[in-house]
Design a protein around this nucleic acid. Structure first.
Length: 104
DNA sequence: AGCGTGACGAACT
DNA sequence: TAGTTCGCCACGC
């Protein structure tokens, strides 16, 4: 059974529109926490891999980060590009432009 | 109750 | 500018 914290993380991720991305820190901030590390762990244990657009969650420096679902980071980059997000060398092109700011 | 881990972040060198 | 170190919170053992 997933904890409430995990659920909230997945819910926040589900709010990310197609063609946009967000960061682990933004999610943590959205939840009013600084547990960006825990957010990563939450997604890592995410049983709803294809159900939640976890591939839209990237690092604050613009790098894609990681992906535990099938295909790993390679698949993640592919999915992002398919949604219109340019991925160059494992990093998001025009990262700030693609960044989706979560709002309370 | 304590220790180590992890899809991270910011500071420091 | 790039590489390294420390800090961070939730979770499992």
């Amino acid at each position: 059974m997933a904890s409430e914290f995990q659920k909230r993380v997945w819910e926040a991720v589900s709010l990310i529109p197609r063609g946009k991305v967000t960061t682990y820190k933004e999610i943590a901030r959205f939840l009013n926490m600084k547990a960006y590390r825990a957010v990563g762990v939450a997604l890592a244990k995410n049983p709803y891999a294809p159900k939640v657009p976890c591939h839209r969650v990237v690092k604050s420096n613009g790098e894609i980060g990681n992906y535990s679902a099938e295909g790993g980071v390679q698949k993640k980059a592919e999915l992002l590009q398919k949604e219109g997000v340019e991925v160059k060398e494992g990093k998001i092109a025009y990262f700030e432009k693609r960044l989706y700011k979560l709002k309370e």
